[in-house]
Design a protein around this nucleic acid. Structure first.
Lengths: 239, 239
DNA sequence: CAAAAAACATGATTTGCGTCATGAGTGTAT
DNA sequence: ATACACTCATGACGCAAATCATGTTTTTTG
């Protein structure tokens, strides 16, 4: 109960912070039986093991990914630098940005954090459905819009906050949006947190340490626990 | 001819840099006569003077904006900080991110850089058209996708490059995407360049100065001239 | 199970860039 | 014409955070 109270605080307030979010899509609900069947016939279910690359930046986008289970890291790479664009959880779609027909190459890499099940759906089927089914199209537009807005917020956050603020935001988002609990096992390495926040690995470690010293969070190996969400919130807005 | 050679270089290579882009929309071409008329009947043409606010962050999104003429700055504000999200030029749509029906508030402010003519189109009409006309919906999705991708690139750029790289990118983008010439009158103040690049005004000034000293650009008051696009390109990728 | 490779951690050092202070030039409102 | 405000500009200073260096722990793998 203590637990769930903290959680409810997190979930309730999370809308103000923004680095990582969970945007799910119910677009398939709007299909007719016939259309659902069409999708069925043109999709493949694939399981990926932890760490495996699902799609690689630079390859052709023949399919859209729908995450059934697991957790996926979507990131942009250039040289030895990389930036995590989003963390996609079940019911998320990946590859929507390749819907324009002149955009047939993946602009990012997606890899599985944990064992992940993905539906691969022929992109041309999706295009066809958008043409045919207005409600489906609307649902797709909704997802794209939300992603865009979320990105704006994250953009601002990463540009105007400093280390403390960024990390506080990320921790709150992970707790509230991705894991939906205040105590969770973090699958991301410090290096990945760095790629997510646009800071160096060392800075991430140091900042986490100081959060711990200040009693804001508790870290035990991979297990993170948010102790003082209000405090993190404050840091996030002022830092 | 010297001029146009430099320009063609810029336009050709610009795809690799990314901070500012010009994403136009031809979605209305796909409407039936009837639908076009519907739009006509539910739109208003408004002229804004240089500097005027077109929509204010936090207000209700009853309309989508279509820019007919001019140049618009779209930015996010929080406290005294602000971040320019994009510079919208003619044929751009603003407000698409508010299409989800649960998203009825503008998440950004838009103001006119120069005298600007805007069509205000009832957002419910747009929603209706998306439902009814698949090709229209597809066009909207194309715009949203392109915006999203462009944002990813910019995101990466602003996070991983440093001052030199960021500004070099912005200058190339302004020349190649917005003004489409290597010599243009820059309507943005240094402060606005700062908001666009996520750096301080002073740093912008200093960096511009050093570009000038290195013979990469020439600045005369508000007039910018790109002299060595290749050089800027190089800085942009290595800086 | 040992060896190798990541990940985690901490301290020292450097530096990019933001902040502050100050002033000149330009536009605008009274 | 004067005053005020804003932009442009430059120098000095300080600090946050990246980088470098090194060591420990954990995980991977052969």
């Amino acid at each position: 109960m203590q637990n769930s109270k903290v959680l409810s605080n997190i979930v309730e307030r999370i809308k103000t912070s923004c680095t990582v979010s969970n945007i799910s899509c119910s677009c398939f609900d709007h299909l007719t039986e016939e259309q659902k069947e069409l999708v069925e016939r043109n999709q493949v279910m694939v399981e990926y093991k932890k760490g495996e690359v699902i799609v690689k930046q630079g390859t052709f986008t023949s399919h859209i990914l729908y995450i059934c289970e697991g957790l996926v890291k979507v990131f942009y790479e250039e040289g030895d630098q990389s930036l995590i664009l989003r963390i996609a959880s079940p019911k998320s779609l990946i590859g929507l940005t390749s819907l324009p027909t002149n955009q047939n190459i993946f602009q990012y890499t997606a890899s599985a954090y944990v064992n992940t099940t993905v539906k691969l759906i022929d992109i041309n089927i999706i295009r066809k459905l958008i043409l045919e089914n207005g409600r489906f199209a609307t649902a797709i537009i909704d997802v794209l819009s939300e992603v865009a807005m979320q990105k704006n917020g994250r953009f601002f956050c990463l540009n105007h906050r400093q280390a403390f603020g960024k990390l506080a935001d990320i921790i709150l988002c992970l707790a509230g949006n991705i894991f939906k609990t205040d105590k969770f096992e973090l699958l991301l390495s410090r290096k990945e947190l760095a790629e997510l926040s646009g800071m160096s690995t060392e800075s991430v470690i140091r900042t986490l340490k100081s959060f711990q010293d200040d009693g804001l969070i508790r870290i035990n190996g991979k297990t993170f626990e948010v102790i003082d969400p209000e405090g993190l919130m404050k840091i996030c807005h002022l830092g």
